[in-house]
Computed example of a mutant assay.
Amino acid sequence: MKQPLGVILAGGLATRMGGGDKGALPLGSATLLDHVMARLSPQVAGLALNANGDADRFARYGLPVIADSIDGFAGPLAGVLAGLDWAAELGADTIVTAAADTPFFPDDLVSVLQAGATGMTHPLALAATPHPDRNKVRHPTFGLWPVALRDDLRAALTGGVRKVVQWSDQHQGRLAMFPDEAAFFNVNTPEDLAKAETML
């Protein structure tokens, strides 16, 4: 399987952090987005940032900034679609997405997702981790997505689909299991940011 393009999903509203760009929050001597870029860049053939509004605020990161094409806040699937459209222009077959507020995700994210989708005509896999109470936990902002299904996703979003799992299940999306749930720890609140500092 060819190396995919990477898309960092930074289009969230960050309501629990008081709004603004969570990726710009400081963590150690860098920002959340710096940490995410450093983890994803070596795993992909190229990298873009999905964010809405004025793209110039991300200029220091040196990434292409791609906005949602679906009006209104349509959630992570709209960011996935933006990434698939960008990848189609570059002739890529797949993208891997990562959330801008999750700085410790696995260094083997892409290879494990690709292995999970082995043999699929349209490789589609979401990250998941074991959970003692719920068997497993899905992490739907971390996934491998096929460019070939972008028009299907566009139609689904236009029709009102918002849940990642609802759409991925329709296409027999698989789960790629990772051993450590802590790797997908994401920063939603100021308390989470303090915890991330100790984890760093």
Rank of each mutant, 00 (worst) to 15 (best):
S29H: 07
L49N: 06
D108E: 02
D68I: 07
W145P: 05
E197P: 05
F142W: 00
D54H: 04
H35N: 01
V137Q: 14
G160I: 04
H35K: 04
P130F: 06
F185L: 06
A127D: 01
W86R: 09
P123G: 04
L126C: 13
A125W: 00
P4S: 06
W167I: 03
V110W: 01
D68Y: 11
L175D: 13
G28Q: 00
D101C: 02
N135T: 14
A92M: 06
V164N: 07
D108A: 06
D93E: 13
A194G: 04
A87P: 10
A88K: 08
D152F: 00
S29C: 07
M120N: 04
P4Q: 10
A125I: 01
A99E: 12
L175Y: 12
V147Y: 05
P103A: 06
F58V: 08
A194T: 12
F58M: 04
G173T: 01
R16F: 05
D101P: 02
I95V: 13
M17Y: 05
M199R: 11
A125V: 03
D85E: 15
V147D: 06
V65G: 07
V187K: 02
L25T: 02
T189D: 05
L9F: 00
P179T: 05
G62S: 07
A183D: 13
A59L: 06
A88H: 12
D71C: 10
G72L: 11
D107N: 11
L49R: 05
K136A: 15
N50Q: 15
R16T: 12
L175V: 14
G160Y: 01
Q3S: 15
L81W: 06
A196R: 01
G6L: 01
V110C: 02
D71W: 04
I70Q: 11
T158G: 12
L113E: 03
A14T: 11
D169Y: 08
A55G: 10
A87S: 08
P146E: 10
T198A: 14
F105L: 02
Q114C: 09
S69P: 13
Q170T: 09
A176P: 03
Q3L: 15
T15Q: 15
A82R: 08
I95N: 08
M37Q: 14
A182W: 07
D54I: 02
K2F: 09
W145T: 05
V187F: 02
A182I: 13
R57V: 13
N135I: 14
P64W: 02
G143Q: 09
P146V: 13
P123R: 02
G20N: 14
L63A: 07
G46T: 06
L33C: 01
W86C: 10
D107H: 11
A78L: 09
D54G: 10
Q43A: 00
G143W: 00
V96D: 00
P4K: 03
P4I: 03
